[in-house]
């Protein structure tokens, strides 16, 4: 037992080097920094919305379809609500639902992947075939199916997106775990007689997490787009007043000819946040995987 712990201490995770290194590389990666700026913009809009939004996003405080002005930076919508404030609060929803969905997907996919990759055998087979079933359905259709079955609402939306991403995470983690099985330090730990569970948790998982983190960042971009897509199809939050970007876009498209700026602002918000996560995801991949160094 003591020996095992000793080995753990020595073998677990390559020394702080990897993350320290990665952070340094990330800081030197210009695109990733741009991504970080986009995300900061997005996240601070989301978190600070109650403080920086000039108006109540639900209140009708302007006349209908005002053009952008100093009072209403993005103009007003049909009901005279301030679009800038609504876009800010929309970030909150996208961030909340997006991060929530990806977190659920990570946990769900992570557990399944860890079981499959860590234990192998029949469980592995069952889990992998199950993920195959879900992966064979285009993710937007899967999400649509789940929302129609569960009814509209934010938790449902979150769950729908989570379920459509979880299989990817499961497979990814399983793949890395399988690759790690034969890694020197894992073999070493095994020869010393560390338990399977211990090896999995202490030695393999920490090293298999890297691709998962990269993937999670990239998937956040897709999640934001998918949430808007569901909103666009009329499957957004149940309260129609919710300033969800996709739902707002449906309303705005009717004014595509008379007030095109609304679509531009809302579409722009979606694009900027998605770009942010995509850039950061790429940056993370490059910095965490020294092999990809140019």
């Amino acid at each position: 037992m003591l020996r095992a712990a000793l080995v753990d201490a020595q073998l677990a995770r390559p020394p702080r080097g990897l993350w320290g290194d990665a952070a340094r590389r990330l800081r030197r990666n210009r695109p990733a920094m741009v991504g970080l700026i986009c995300i900061t913009l997005f996240a601070s809009a989301a978190i600070l919305a109650p403080f920086i939004a000039p108006f109540d996003p639900y209140a009708m405080n302007g006349s209908s379809l005002d053009a952008p002005s100093l009072t209403h930076l993005f103009g007003t919508d049909l009901l005279g609500r301030d679009i800038f404030s609504r876009v800010l609060y929309g970030a909150q929803i996208s961030l909340f639902v997006g991060v929530g969905a990806v977190a659920i997907a990570l946990v769900l996919g992570g557990v399944l992947g860890a079981i499959a990759g860590g234990f192998g055998g029949r469980i592995d087979g069952v889990i992998m075939r199950t993920t195959d079933v879900f992966l064979s359905i285009p993710s937007i259709l899967l999400a649509i199916g789940i929302v129609t079955a569960l009814g509209r609402g934010m938790p449902q939306l979150m769950l729908a997106i989570a379920v459509s991403y979880a299989p990817t995470f499961a497979r990814l983690l399983r793949g890395s775990l399988l690759a790690l099985r034969e890694a020197d330090y894992v073999v070493a730990a095994r020869t010393i007689g560390a338990s399977r569970m211990r090896i999995l948790v202490r030695h393999m998982l920490p090293n298999a997490l890297t691709p998962l983190i990269v993937q999670a960042t990239l998937v956040l971009a897709t999640a934001i787009i998918d949430i808007a897509g569901l909103g666009f199809l009329g499957l957004g939050p149940s309260d129609p007043r919710t300033p969800e970007w996709g739902t707002m876009l449906v309303d705005a498209r009717r004014f595509m000819q008379s007030a095109p700026h609304i679509v531009v602002f809302i579409g722009g918000a979606i694009v900027i946040s998605a770009i942010g996560f995509n850039l950061l995801g790429d940056g993370l991949r490059e910095s965490l995987d020294p092999k990809l160094k140019r």
């Binding site: 639900y58 009708m60 049909l78 009901l79 509209r152 149940s238 309260d239 129609p240 007043r241 309303d251």
Partner: peptide, 23 residues
């Protein structure tokens, strides 16, 4: 219907009603 609902709800809340939105 959605827009009308939103506007009517806002009108009603302005005079003190509490609206449970449903669709």
């Amino acid at each position: 219907p959605k827009g009308l609902f939103e506007a009517i709800t806002a009108n009603l809340e302005a005079v003190g009603f509490t609206i449970n939105p449903n669709s």
